[in-house]
Each structure stands twice: as structure tokens, then as C-alpha cells.
Nucleic acid binder design. Structure first.
Length: 710
DNA sequence: GACCTGCTGCGGGCTG
């Protein structure tokens, strides 16, 4: 039987009326699977390949929406995506007389109230809104969701291996507990590397099936190399970039918000001068939400005019922005999976191959960029998801949430609930007890006779509006022009009266700064500096660094490189030819210069961090340059260094002591975790160890590496 | 050498 015939009559009518001649591969597979079983499914395929319909066509065919209670829950990582998908799902449901309700912080509260009085149909929600419901109105969760049949999780890859994902996994389990009969889960995802983790996310790996649409899109790739001079992009690069993008619909990804502004403003200036199109925008988290919505709307609805959006990962996820002809990446991405997301945003027209242009501004970035491209296109490599096996900080959060939701709960019952939750399945009971005891000790929890309740100190935390999310955000200054919010900026040396800055693809002069209300008043200006933001670097997988070394030691000529890129690689190869390298897997390079040593490790960020800590412990004076994966080592001879190097493995078993000392030195290191500071010290150390270090890989690295000298 | 994400409940003021 054909997949189409499995659908219910009204859904078939919908498909025919839309004029769809045939179902996509992913849709046919999903329909056959979902119609025939109540198993969980992961549907993986490119952006805009009809995944939403792949999930909803069979679910709408299968369920009886006359039943009371919400039947389908759709969970999205973004409010913007909920608003997007609402229109599509509502269109589908109009035929079937099913009510669809948006439920997030900005959604209409009258609609929400109507749903609570008469729960039915489909609800679109964020993880944080679900959390809030569990904390404040657990009775509502029971009333609304105890007859739930399906939960659809959009962009499920964005939850894998993240704190927010652990939170969602925990919430899903808590919801399963109030449900009469377990609901099924359908995860929608872009193509990812780690389907095992995606399957485990449903809480029932063996009853979860993955459907993948692997049909690859043809890509035309071009590399351009323009060495930058210091902080700003070279004028040659900008001119080339302008010519490359002026007649297309383009997304440019420059890896940082400051540079996104620099590019948008400078390309617009060139365009103004030569009478090109005026549609240059920037899109990132510091651009006001309404401004961003305008940009998205423009891209989606102007079919004839070209545009250029200079953006960060805000445009990586699946917000619908219509057709994009070309993707430009400035310098290497931090991961292959991010690279895949960005490439996937182009070439929606099926008849044309996607166009990808990779600019590099530094020799190491050029090398990394080539490595990423080869790993993606030849080796089909994607980083595995790095799981936090024991997410103690999320355990703190969920413990507080469960206690607050229950008002009071027996300690044994709380421990049992946490232990049965798949989000914490790797955490031992003694560890859960340790966390809860510490929360009791710091008055976040309190014993009231036989029960546990929220303690004095915990009240402030759980009653705050900020409690529902597990990630941290800083308070920034609002940038305002003539009463309109342009965006926001962190406080820095730049924020001063009379200074000129770039924001939202425009140039502004700061007229006044109000530190009290955190507002900056601006007027338009003619020239200015790119804004400064703060952030620590990303983490590069060892495989990318190994590929960089492989390219360096090889002699293949790449036909996708331009002349200057070709010359730069040639020069790099010449520089490294002083080493007689035999084995790319195990040989690493020690360059002996006059007064210092350069150790090129060609390994991942976490191993480098671990090596740095070990160097510090044994008193090797060093500085780490992550971009080239190189340690600059001084005040020691090569021979002394090598004999100390041999002793490093024996310090690894005491990593917790070393990390503990480092944490005492700089408590600020815990800042990455919103709830980590409420853990006992030994668990804080474990959290830090998992986040910034990799003792297992470092042990292996130290044991297998052979150091080659020049 | 970084990027991103979300938000209750209540009270007061205003509009229709």
C-alpha cells in the first residue's frame, strides 16, 4: 500500500488541494512508520524538506481529536519557530477542525486561558514554558496533558548534548509520569552525526527508529584567501566579497557579532557608492527582535530583490527565510556540524547547485577551513555529541523545580523520581543524596517534619522569572534611537558619550548613556567602530586538528583554492618540511627556536586545556595559542622539556586536585553554569572537569605521541 | 577565537 493511501480522507484531501504531486521520501517513510506503530521516530533531513508535514500528516490521520485533553504537543527551541510553524500547522488543521494554540511567553494569554478551560487539539510550546507550568501549575499539566498521544520535538539536534537538552529530557519524563498511557515522541532534525544520542533522547532507545534522507545536494565550493591587517578586514577582501554577493540572495557567516556588523556596514557603503541594491542587514542576538523579524520578513517575501544578511548562528536554525542562492563563510567554523547547518540553508531551488564561498583571513584559518571542507565532503565526518554524563547542575535545577511543583515531597520519593528520570540515569543515588544534602545545608531546601520544602534561600531562586531556563544571560545596555530600540550592547570602554558604533547594519553616535536604567541614546552617524562583545573561544574537535596536520604534510594540490590560498599553503608546507614526520596519527612537532620552544600538538581544544594544566603543575612556563594548536614554551631546554613531558601521565590521576586548586584561584571559572555554584565543591570540580578538560583523551595522547624535533 | 536560546504573576494605568 502506498504511504498516501494510509492517510485519513480529510488529510488526503488537504494534500491534493495543496497541489503536491508526490510525497517526499522522508514523508512517505514517516507516514508508513507512524501509521503502523506507536514507536518513537527521529526524522532527519535538510531544512525545508517537509519534515513538519512528515510528522503531522500521519499524526493528524491517526488520532481522534474529539477526545478531551491536548492530543499533540509540539516543542521548539525558539519562539520565532513556533510563530512560523503555527501558520503552517494551523493551515493543515483548518480542514480538520482541530484547534492549535501557541503557548510561550509572548503568546496571547486569552488564548492560553481558553485552552486551560477546555484542553484540546495541538499545543506549540517552549521547554521553558513547560518548566514554568510544571513549577507553578502542576494541576494544569495533569488536566491538560494526561491524555497526550504525541510529542513532536523540532530541531532536536539543538538539544543533544546541551544543558537545555538535559532539562527537556527531564521534563519529558516528568510529563510521562502524569500521563495515563505513555505518549510517543517524534524528533525532527537536520542531518546530524550522532543518531544514537538522538534515539536515547526519547528515553526509550530500543523503541526509537531513525529515518534519514541522505540525498546530498550538489555544492560548488570556492576558497578565497585575503590576509587581514590586524583587527579589520582588508579592503581587497571587502571588494571581492561585494562583487561575489551583489547579484544574489546571500547569507554571510563571519563567526562574531562585531564582524557581522563590520561586514554589513562596509558592504552597504560600497553598494551605495556604485548604486547597488540597498538591502544589507545584520542579524544576531544583539540586534533588536523586531528589527530581526523585519529582516526575516524581507528575505522571505521579496522574491525579486537581492539581499545580503550578515549573521551569526541566529540564522542557523530553521526559521523560514525563503530562497538563499549563496552561503559565505568568513574563516573556519568551530565545528563540522555548524558547517552542515550553514551550508544547508542554501540552494532551496532544486534545479541549481548550492554555492558556497569560503573566505579566510589568516593562514591557520585557511588550513582549518580546508580541513573542515575535506572532513565534510570526503570523509563524511561529523563530531559526536559530547554528553554531560552526570549533569549535577541540572539536577539542582530539576530538584528545586520538582519540590516547588509539589509544594512538599518526601525525601525518598524525590530521590526515586530523580533516579528514575532518564536525564539522570548515569547519576548514582549517593550522588543525588549528596546534592540534596548540600541544598538542605545551604537552605535552598528545608526539612519540615517528614517532608522536603523549598528553603529560605531557595525561595528567591524558584520565584524568580529567571528560574525556568537553565542558561545564563547578562544584562546589557539598550540602544535607542528616537524612541525605537535598535538592539543592545554589553558595557565596555566603547560605551561613552560621543563614541561612534555599528549596530543593526547602521552607524550611530552615542548621545547619552544612562547607567541607572542601562540605556544608550544614539543618533545616526557617518563612520564608526564595530562593537565589542565578550566571549571565550569555542572547542575544536581533535579530528579537525589532525586533518590540518595531514594537509600540512601532504602534497595534494586543491583545485578549489585561489592563487593566494594556494601560495599560502605551499609556504606553510615549506615551513614544516624541517620535520621528518613519519606518522600523522602519533608524531607531533617540537620546534626549537633561539630562546624558546614551540610545541605543535595538532589536537583538540580540551586536550590542549588539559596539557596546559599539566604544564602549569610541573612548572613548565607556557602559553597556549589555540588557533594553531601551539604551546610557546620558555625558560627550559628541549632536553629538560622532553624529560618532564615523560612524567606528565602520572599527574593525570590527581586532576581533581589540580582543577580544585585552579578553581580556588579563579572561582569565576564556574560562571558557565547557572546552577553549578549551588553544588558541593567536589561536584563543582567534576562539572568543570567535564566542561573544559578531557583526561581520557589526554592520557591516550600522552601515551601514543612521539615528539619530533627540528 | 564565539555563538545561541526563554520568561510568571500581579498590580496599575489606559482604552473601548
Amino acid at each position: 500500500m502506498k504511504a498516501f493511501d494510509l492517510l485519513s480522507a480529510p488529510v488526503r484531501k488537504f494534500v491534493r488541494n495543496r497541489g503536491w504531486h508526490e510525497l517526499r521520501k522522508i514523508q512517505a517513510a514517516a507516514i508508513t512508520g507512524i501509521m503502523s506503530s506507536d514507536d518513537n521516530y527521529i526524522l532527519a533531513s535538510r531544512t525545508a524538506s517537509g519534515k513538519t508535514e512528515a510528522a503531522f500528516l500521519p499524526v493528524l490521520s491517526k488520532l481522534n481529536f474529539e477526545e478531551t485533553g491536548v492530543q499533540v504537543l509540539y516543542i521548539s527551541p525558539l519562539v520565532a519557530l513556533i510563530n512560523d510553524q503555527f501558520l503552517r500547522i494551523e493551515e493543515l488543521c483548518k480542514y480538520l477542525n482541530i484547534r492549535v494554540t501557541k503557548w510561550h511567553g509572548e503568546a496571547n494569554s486569552a488564548q492560553k486561558n481558553r485552552l486551560t478551560r477546555n484542553p484540546e487539539g495541538i499545543v506549540l510550546i517552549t521547554p521553558e514554558s513547560l518548566e514554568a507550568m510544571l513549577v507553578n501549575k502542576p494541576f494544569l499539566v495533569k488536566g491538560m496533558f494526561s491524555n497526550l498521544k504525541y510529542t513532536v520535538i523540532d530541531e532536536i539536534h539543538s538539544f543533544l548534548g546541551t544543558d537545555r537538552g538535559t532539562q527537556l529530557k527531564s521534563i519529558l519524563h516528568r510529563m510521562q509520569c502524569v500521563n495515563a498511557k505513555p505518549f510517543s515522541i517524534i524528533g525532527l532534525s537536520a542531518t546530524i552525526g550522532d543518531y544514537g544520542e538522538a534515539k536515547r533522547f526519547t528515553g526509550n532507545e530500543s523503541k526509537t527508529t531513525v529515518f534519514r534522507d541522505t540525498s546530498a545536494k550538489e555544492i560548488n565550493v570556492l576558497f578565497r584567501y585575503f590576509k587581514d591587517n590586524g583587527d579589520e578586514l582588508s579592503i581587497e577582501l571587502l571588494k571581492d566579497l561585494y562583487m561575489e554577493t551583489k547579484d544574489r540572495k546571500v547569507l554571510i557567516f563571519p563567526n562574531s557579532r562585531g564582524r557581522a556588523e563590520e561586514i554589513a556596514v562596509k558592504l552597504k557603503k560600497i553598494s551605495d557608492r556604485v548604486d547597488g541594491h540597498p538591502n544589507y542587514f545584520s542579524h544576531h542576538s544583539s540586534v533588536d527582535r523586531e528589527v530581526r523579524e523585519y529582516v526575516e520578513h524581507f528575505a522571505k517575501n521579496n522574491h525579486r530583490e537581492n539581499f545580503c544578511i550578515s549573521c551569526t548562528s541566529t540564522l542557523e536554525l530553521g526559521i523560514d527565510i525563503g530562497t538563499v542562492d549563496e552561503i559565505v563563510q568568513i574563516d573556519a567554523t568551530y565545528s563540522i556540524s555548524s558547517f552542515i547547518q550553514r551550508v544547508g540553508r542554501s540552494g532551496r531551488k532544486d534545479d541549481r547547485p548550492a554555492r558556497l564561498c569560503l573566505y579566510a583571513t589568516d593562514k591557520w584559518d585557511l588550513l582549518q577551513s580546508i580541513a573542515c571542507w575535506l572532513l565534510y565532503s570526503r570523509d563524511m565526518f561529523v563530531e559526536p555529541v559530547k554528553m554531560q554524563e552526570k549533569p549535577y547542575d541540572i539536577l539542582v535545577h530539576q530538584s528545586l523545580s520538582i519540590v516547588k511543583g509539589n509544594s512538599e515531597i518526601k525525601l525518598k520519593s524525590l530521590i526515586r523520581q530523580l533516579k528514575n528520570n532518564p536525564a539522570f540515569s548515569q547519576t548514582e543515588i549517593v550522588e543525588i543524596e549528596q546534592v540534596l544534602n548540600h541544598l538542605l545545608k545551604i537552605d535552598f531546601l528545608e526539612k519540615a517534619e517528614q517532608d522536603i520544602i523549598i528553603g529560605i534561600e531557595g525561595e528567591n531562586i524558584v520565584n524568580s522569572r529567571n528560574f525556568y531556563s537553565v542558561f545564563k544571560t547578562e544584562k546589557n545596555f539598550k540602544v535607542i534611537h528616537a524612541g525605537n530600540t535598535i538592539g543592545e550592547l554589553p558595557f565596555s570602554f566603547q560605551i561613552a558619550e560621543g563614541a561612534n558604533i555599528l549596530l543593526a547594519a547602521r552607524i550611530w553616535k552615542i548621545r547619552s548613556v544612562d547607567s541607572e536604567s542601562k540605556k544608550i541614546d544614539v543618533i545616526p552617524a557617518k563612520d564608526g567602530k564595530k562593537p565589542v562583545f565578550f566571549g571565550s573561544g569555542g572547542s575544536i574537535h581533535p579530528k579537525i586538528r589532525e586533518k590540518m596536520l595531514e594537509i600540512l604534510c601532504g602534497d595534494e594540490e586543491y583545485d578549489f583554492l585561489d592563487r593566494s590560498g594556494h601560495d599560502e599553503i605551499k609556504q606553510l608546507r615549506r615551513d614544516f618540511s624541517v620535520f621528518n614526520l613519519q606518522n600523522i596519527q602519533t608524531d607531533r612537532l617540537l620546534f626549537k627556536a633561539e630562546n624558546h620552544l614551540c610545541l605543535f600538538t595538532f589536537t583538540g581544544t580540551l586536550v590542549n586545556h588539559t596539557l596546559k594544566l599539566l604544564f602549569d603543575v610541573v612548572g613548565i612556563k607556557n602559553e597556549l595559542y589555540e588557533q594553531s594548536s601551539m604551546f610557546d614554551i620558555s625558560d627550559i631546554s628541549a632536553d629538560d622539556f622532553l624529560s618532564k613531558w615523560k612524567t606528565l601521565p602520572k599527574y593525570l590521576p590527581d586532576m581533581n586536585v589540580h582543577i580544585g586548586n585552579s578553581l580556588k584561584d579563579k572561582p569565576i571559572q564556574m560562571d558557565f553554569s547557572k546552577y553549578g555554584v549551588y553544588l558541593p565543591e567536589n561536584l563543582q570540580i567534576e562539572l568543570l572537569k567535564n566542561k573544559y578538560f578531557d583526561t581520557g583523551q589526554t592520557d591516550l595522547f600522552l601515551k601514543t605521541t612521539k615528539i619530533i624535533e627540528n
